[in-house]
Computed example of a mutant assay.
Amino acid sequence: MSDKIALSTWPTPLEPLPRLAAALGLGEDDLWIKRDDLIGLGGGGNKVRKLEWIVGAALADGADTLVTTGAAQSNHARLTAAAGARLGLDVVLVFPGTPDSATDGSGNLVLDSLFGARIFWAGDGVPSALAGVADDVCRRLCRDGARPYPIPFGGSSPLGARGYVDGGEELLAQLPDMDHVVVALGSGGTMAGLIGAVGERRVLGVHCGAVADPAATVADLAGALTGRSIGADSLRIRTDQVGAGYAVLHEPVLEAMQLAATTEGIVLDPVYTGRAMAGLIAAVRDGDIRSGRRTVFLHTGGLPGLFGHTAAVRRTVGALHSYSAG
């Protein structure tokens, strides 16, 4: 029997993007958006699909506390906190840095607090050490009588990736003749799950700089999920939108965010969905995505993260359009 639990209602909408398609030189019926940003829990986002499986397993294991890691503006951490609040579970989030490094308390941090999560600040060590810190936190919780359940970075495990097998099958039911689905590649589980549903050749992942080796990460997850060998060289991954690094605003990303907003009223974030859109635009320019092919952009959410990204906020506010009458 499956341990999956319901944290939202499905399916999420699939909508056309005719004005954006025209701006890119595509046919008006060529470009669509899968609105996983509209998932109901905790401000929305792709991590809810993963958490339905992961938190289901935690409850089946008798856990009373969820422990996970991420950057201070982690969408996954925010949605883990929301899932815990929904289900009456305590949540501890392990972040790099110190409280002083997040003094403005903006973006996702506001919601983490609102959902009642506790934050353990791990200091200024390398982010790769966070998993070990989280293990230490779990041991401390056990000593205090809690029953913690560790959730990996981004919720990306073979179990979590099953959420996007579900999502991919849902998408195929909505648009059976889809040729491409474009998705941000962060911790890898969303892309791996989509591959499990629609195959390697229809999924284009846009690397966001969250992992050192995105192809190997996705290939390992997809292989464990599907039970077959998947070569990293068989995956479609763009690495041209990382720029100076994961948290650093990349100029083509800001331009992609502005184009999506001004043509369709769609809001993207500067770390994940903005990079994915910039990758889609680049794929059209270099001919990987062409007119006459049905392309779906998977909107994985992340709106709160926009307000926690100082450079993106400053650049966007600095470009305010003024109207002078007379």
Rank of each mutant, 00 (worst) to 15 (best):
L194N: 00
T239W: 09
G209P: 10
G205M: 02
L235D: 13
H299Y: 05
E255C: 05
G308E: 10
I230T: 11
R275S: 01
T263M: 12
A283N: 05
R201T: 10
R294K: 15
G292N: 03
Y272T: 01
A219L: 08
R285S: 06
D286S: 01
R290V: 15
V242D: 08
A244Q: 11
A197K: 10
E251L: 14
L225I: 04
L306N: 04
I230D: 13
I289A: 08
G302S: 08
V206S: 00
A232K: 11
L259A: 13
T273D: 01
D286L: 06
T300D: 00
L306A: 09
A197Q: 11
V242M: 12
I289S: 03
H299T: 07
P270T: 02
G279P: 07
P304Q: 04
V203N: 00
A282I: 11
G243F: 02
L235Y: 10
M191C: 06
G274F: 04
T226G: 13
V271L: 01
R238H: 11
G305M: 05
V284L: 12
R202I: 05
A311R: 14
L221W: 13
I230E: 03
L254W: 02
L254D: 01
T226L: 12
A192F: 03
Y246P: 07
D233N: 14
A276S: 09
V253E: 02
D288P: 11
I237H: 05
G205Y: 05
T263E: 13
L249K: 05
P270K: 00
T239V: 13
G243A: 09
S291R: 15
D240T: 03
T226F: 08
G243T: 04
A192L: 01
S229E: 15
H250M: 02
D269F: 03
V211R: 06
D220C: 14
L259N: 01
V248E: 07
S291K: 14
A283C: 05
T295W: 06
V248H: 07
A261Y: 00
